[in-house]
Design a protein around this nucleic acid. Sequence first.
DNA 1: TATTGTTATACTCTATAACTATA
DNA 2: TATAGTTATAGAGTATAACAATA
Lengths: 144, 144
Amino acid sequence: MGDEPATKESHTDAIVELLFGLTERVRVHSEIIAGEFDLPLAQAAALLHLRDPIPMSELATALTCDRSNITGIIDRLEERGLVERLTDAADRRVKQLVLTRAGHRMRDRLHTRLYGDLLHTPGVTADLASLGELLATADGAAPQ
Amino acid sequence: MGDEPATKESHTDAIVELLFGLTERVRVHSEIIAGEFDLPLAQAAALLHLRDPIPMSELATALTCDRSNITGIIDRLEERGLVERLTDAADRRVKQLVLTRAGHRMRDRLHTRLYGDLLHTPGVTADLASLGELLATADGAAPQ
DNA sequence: TATTGTTATACTCTATAACTATA
DNA sequence: TATAGTTATAGAGTATAACAATA
């Protein structure tokens, strides 16, 4: 991987650079939109995953973090009346996370704002166009 | 933007979905690699920006965060002997951030690991391939 | 014994506001 | 007056380990 021709090296390097750049732009965009709902990013990300009821552990998996983490995040969403913990009848260890009506409304509005505007953010648009070109001329993007 | 044909809607939706997915994968990948160097993500990101000397405020701009934030991050990197603060002779308010030799070594190794492996991460490879296809058939990706 | 979720703990990140030292 | 960086403060995220309830 280090003995590739220089042209290939800079080509994949450019893709990686764009990916990191896009990641940062997506993060900033998401933080701004989440801020409009007075939500920290982690709580907004959790809310998005709660369209249907799921157990705490499943949310932890979806967010790639520890279970102990979820407790605090859900605590804060619950305090705001957006989520409820329902004990699962089939396995009483499990808490099913269920959105309240207010939670559903906010989740849907958040989703709409987040998805609707991302592709119209100046930096993202430009980066995506560049990435598209690179991937089109790429043989190194998806090596098999 | 809400009155587009259904086909276009799902097309851009798929791109956005992929972008958020890629963002999460890049974050997880970066956290794992940073962990190999025993660095929290924020410190790793800072280190990557310090190839050449820059003032604190410029680093804050690069990381899209408040200046007060940088103080703590640089404190911890300095405690580990990776960075030094040099007072700028031309403007004595400014502190130029300069990597030590150990800092340079770690920054370069970090950069190599981070950039070298990203495109070989299974999920990233698959997502990029899908994104490439979508962008190739896309007229909605970079509207002007 | 194993698993789900919580708690206690410790560290890091983050922004705001007030401060200092320089300009 | 304005700017660069710091400090104090407060809230949030994060993981580890130990724990209670349930399986």
